[in-house]
Design a protein around this nucleic acid. Structure first.
Lengths: 254, 254
DNA sequence: CTCCTTGGTGTACGCCGTACACCTATGGTC
DNA sequence: GACCATAGGTGTACGGCGTACACCAAGGAG
């Protein structure tokens, strides 16, 4: 009990405490540094002790994911669908920025956690409540979940990282090393323009939040247009979908 | 040379052969099964032999990425920007389907490979050639590279995988186990509708290729609209960007 | 003939996840 | 109070990983 202070030298190690500590450790040291051994040490306990509370490392990761997904604001009751979706998506994004490991962890898991499913479900629910057909809601969810360029998570992260030689970095221009600029002139042009255009962005080259909202609004506005004109998948209303130029590009969809 | 057939018992192990074999192994057995030891065994060689041709495993992965990125069709010279972009993106997608490990591998690397940079550069070039301002091209690239829902790569992959109990799976409905359907009614509704709507989709629930092109065209059409109306970031022309509802949601972008 | 370089080998180290046997308090039952 | 089942922390050990480092065989150059 409380009498023997040194026997209860630590808080008594529960699944919840393990998950909280694991999230904190991944936040601080990166997901690569999250080993069962490191986590155990952080908790002042031997590695195998963890296995009395989580089945294995995969289950630990699942727990961590649901832990952070729960941080996403619940859907707002007021407002139209667009407002609701927008706020929710931005809240999810804030969570992902707080926990940079989460995005990759979620995508890596081979089966979605209950928390993730609940989030997606409530998102579909918001579209449905806004009068969307099941059909349109379905396709819109896909559109919001897919990345058109297959990769390059935050597009210029790589080039930005390549230019970092310290945390100070007061030089906003020349994000590219010169030889890269020669090889990739268009990227260099874009990167250069981005670093000049706005004083509110200090050293990083471009305003991630602006870019994200640009993409979000581009999509939401398109979706709103489809919704208003009563789009259905059997009779597509999008211009280029009707006049599809590359029927041969369709794959076998296996 | 060719005289001693047993001395040259294998093709002489070059960087190119290592990369080709590594790609094939990752394609077949999954990226998790690609260890230096496994790869060496596949090549009939001792693990440390690989290190005479690649610096370490990270560099091996970089090489593999450039290997598969090179499979993306070069940009078409003819046609308008939309045609060019669309074809290129779809070609990239086909590559990513051939090499399911590639998408994650590319996103995991902390510095973009030359091949990836070249691909992105040519993409920006296509927009520029289509008359896009540097500004718009920049933001559009971000929009195409970002995923609005922060995760869930192919949205219903997870639920689909949860329902797989074999390769046959002749039952298109009930993608969800019933208890999950009760907890996530909207997802269940969407998943159920998807499995009924089209005879061309056999067992998988929804047509990934259709979903992808839906998202692609939604974005391209929105982009075309912005382009036509001379959008600039200083004076946004998108409806919801002008009447932004949630200024407080903006983060410090740091 | 000697020597240097190129490329494959063998051993070994420290990390990882985790199976398994063990120990030790706790609390319920008689 | 005696007994014992159970929950939870411990210690050891195994196989796999990436890779540092010393070694060695073959071939070309002087």
């Amino acid at each position: 009990m409380a009498e023997q202070a040194d026997v209860a030298r630590r808080a008594p190690l529960s699944r919840a405490r393990i998950l909280r500590t694991a999230v904190a450790l991944a936040d601080d040291a990166g997901i690569a540094a999250l080993s069962m051994r490191n986590l155990a040490q952080e908790l002042g306990v031997v590695p195998m002790a963890l296995y009395k509370h989580v089945a294995n490392k995969d289950e630990l990761l699942d727990g961590m994911i649901d832990e952070v997904v729960a941080e996403i604001d619940p859907p707002a009751a007021d407002g139209d669908w667009k407002h609701t979706i927008r706020r929710r998506v931005l809240s999810a994004r804030q969570m992902l920025r707080r926990h940079p490991w989460a995005s990759l962890a979620i995508e890596t898991r081979d089966t979605a956690t209950p928390g993730v499913l609940a989030y997606l479900d409530s998102m579909v629910g918001a579209f449905r409540a806004g009068g969307f057909s099941v059909d349109l809601a379905h396709h819109v969810m896909h559109a919001m979940g897919s990345r058109i360029l297959g990769f390059s998570q935050e597009l210029f992260d790589a080039s930005r990282r390549a230019g970092r030689s310290g945390t100070s970095g007061p030089e906003p221009s020349a994000v590219f090393p010169p030889e890269a600029a020669a090889r990739f002139p268009h990227l260099a042009e874009v990167a250069g323009a981005a670093s000049h255009e706005d004083g509110s962005v200090v050293g990083s080259g471009c305003d991630d939040q602006f870019e994200f909202e640009f993409a979000l609004d581009l999509l939401l506005d398109g979706v709103e247009r489809l919704h208003r004109q009563g789009w259905t998948s059997s009779e597509p209303g999008m211009s280029s979908t009707a006049a599809r130029v590359l029927p041969a590009d369709r794959m076998t969809s296996g």
